[in-house]
């Protein structure tokens, strides 16, 4: 699926790029775990994915599967190393090599369970969660808290409560989110 999207992405199709990111984000993020104490991996991942988008029109496939994903992994590592040098944070041992990456498909069972559990969240935690989702990274938490008439700490506490309640609800349904932390 990921490679099939490449011609569309190269042609500037943002929807195709979104589909590609949806399938690759999780594995790419996990590949950055070893840098997590030295760089803000969310910033690194966003920067790497922006570079993928910029390079895509000229990207040459090498005939092996997941070509763009493998390129993205290298881009993410390079951004992380550059950021470590810029910040002067703890270097990471590169000797252990890259974590294998592979594109994934959506999980319909998880989707259904998450929807049910989200619907059961109490008011304020649900509001905090919904603000983050609706904002989609567009606003910082100060702005989101203000929209809900909350102080920042209150907003964050409600968000913490929402994610803990979601995790508990999913666990009751036999879904252990901790499994997602394994590469």
């Amino acid at each position: 699926m990921a490679d099939e999207l490449l011609p569309l992405i190269a042609a500037g199709d943002t929807r195709a790029f979104g589909l590609w990111v949806a399938g690759c984000e999780h594995t790419l993020r996990l590949s950055l775990r070893r840098y997590a104490a030295s760089v803000d991996t969310e910033a690194v991942l966003q920067e790497a994915l922006l570079r993928v988008w910029q390079v895509a029109p000229k990207f040459q496939v090498d005939g092996r599967p997941d070509a763009l994903l493998r390129f993205a992994q290298v881009a993410a590592r390079n951004v992380a190393l550059s950021e470590i040098r810029r910040l002067g944070t703890k270097p990471v041992d590169e000797a252990e090599g890259d974590v294998a990456v592979a594109a994934a498909s959506p999980d319909p069972l998880l989707r259904a369970a998450v929807k049910d559990c989200r619907d059961k969240l109490p008011g304020k935690p649900r509001d905090a969660l919904d603000q983050r989702l609706e904002s989609a990274g567009g606003d910082d938490d100060h702005v989101l808290a203000e929209r809900l008439g909350m102080k920042l700490n209150t907003f964050l506490q409600n968000f913490t409560r929402a994610r803990k309640l979601l995790a508990e609800c999913l666990k009751k349904r036999g879904i252990d989110l901790e499994m997602e932390l394994s590469p």
């Binding site: 979104g18 589909l19 959506p106 989609a136």
Partner: peptide, 14 residues
């Protein structure tokens, strides 16, 4: 669409 807030933030920027 199966997009996380990271993906949505990225597409917003693009």
């Amino acid at each position: 669409d199966g997009l996380s807030t990271t993906a949505r933030a990225l597409l917003g920027r693009i």
